[in-house]
Design a protein around this nucleic acid. Structure first.
Lengths: 211, 211
DNA sequence: CGCTGATACTGCACTCCGCAGTATTATCTG
DNA sequence: CAGATAATACTGCGGAGTGCAGTATCAGCG
């Protein structure tokens, strides 16, 4: 039985605590969603797979006549997780429709590109607001697993920075594009400058750039 | 017939020029891969779908007895693409295994986390090197579609910044984690500071932060 | 002349998603 | 306290997308 990264994501949550699948779904909305999104549907299927593989056990509880399944990690589950944590991570995957639209902007109208950039900026601001709220919960000491504060901080830093990047890029792109004559952007002076900056970046400072 | 974002990605490429599916596959490796990755397998399937939908036409050419299909966009294809460019883009999707590993680091060893961060950093540096090479091609005037320089610059800027972000984050996280006593990172002072910075960010300056 | 690598695909099993649908229980509202 | 609404707890299904293996043909090179 081959485990997928999704299996390990679930296993990680189970290593933290026991959960019903519904709680698992809620929990992923607060954390995993930001850097490893999976549909609710998949969680139900994956939890069953983990049980089949002997990495989790199930307990069925009843609220009146409504059943609910609680999953708990087994010892094998913990060692499987630990082993996975020792393997090389797959490179990050990025899928950004806004960037796709910018790439093909010359086949549409300038206003459409500006609208797409504005939408992306709004989405990024919303995401940052959500994260700010979550960070506030941690700071107030109201987070459910205070011992996991360090892990939460390291990961949230990445996610918040990502959305800040989207916001800044969208703002920059919009301001540049608004000076274009048409959606072709021919003769835009920023293009050469942008490529030049990218071409230099890695050579100049081989990874030692300060924070 | 329902079109997916993948359909529009392909349609966008066909709007630029005619391609054989093989060329399409090569081309996506140079551009789309970075912000809208799709497996080669899918391109073959999707190109057929576009033809069925009347958005592209096919021409079969022969090299000896080996056939190859060239796809070209139709007028309906162009207007479909233009219409799509006027719709709201889906929010960006991020899937980062390194971050997942950092999130569950307390269930593994510190050295494993540091190794994962180092790997992510290397991947990010490699990606930036690739992008630097591509930027150099543009600057040298050797890019195949010089008229599309502006679109290329806008999109590449985002992608390069993303990988720079990964590199910086991985470097920062590694330096912080290396001071931890164990993989729990209990009592790490940086956690509160990190959350505080995230909590402040959006409130302080509502989107007007300069570049 | 045989080898390697590029070109040009197809089949298959599986992951994953999105949506709709089906219940039951808890909570709020007039 | 009845009725509406929201939360809890799932399943089924069709289709998108992946990854790998497999099947050819053709070009260039020593």
């Amino acid at each position: 039985m081959k485990l997928t990264p999704t299996s390990y994501a679930l296993l990680g949550l189970l290593a933290v605590d026991d959960w019903t699948t519904y709680e698992l779904a809620q929990q992923t909305k607060r954390s995993l969603r930001f850097f490893f999104p999976r549909a609710e549907r998949q969680l139900y299927a994956e939890a069953k797979r983990l049980t089949e593989a002997g990495l989790a056990t199930t307990t069925i509880a009843y609220t009146g006549r409504r059943a609910s399944t609680t999953y708990a990690i087994t010892a094998e589950g913990r060692s499987e997780l630990a082993a996975w944590l020792g393997t090389e991570p797959a490179p990050p995957v990025l899928e950004a429709e806004v960037v796709l639209r910018a790439f093909f902007a010359d086949h549409g109208r300038v206003d459409d590109l500006l609208a797409a950039l504005a939408a992306a900026r709004d989405q990024a601001v919303d995401a940052q607001r959500e994260l700010a709220t979550l960070a506030g919960v941690w700071l107030a000491g109201d987070a459910p697993f205070p011992d996991r504060m360090s892990q939460g901080a390291i990961t949230m830093r990445f996610v918040a920075d990502f959305h800040e990047l989207v916001e800044r890029w969208a703002t920059w792109a919009a301001s540049e594009v608004s000076s274009w004559d048409d959606a072709q952007g021919r003769g835009w002076a920023g293009a050469r400058a942008t490529f030049a900056a990218i071409a230099e970046r890695v050579e100049v400072q081989p990874g030692s750039r300060p924070e």
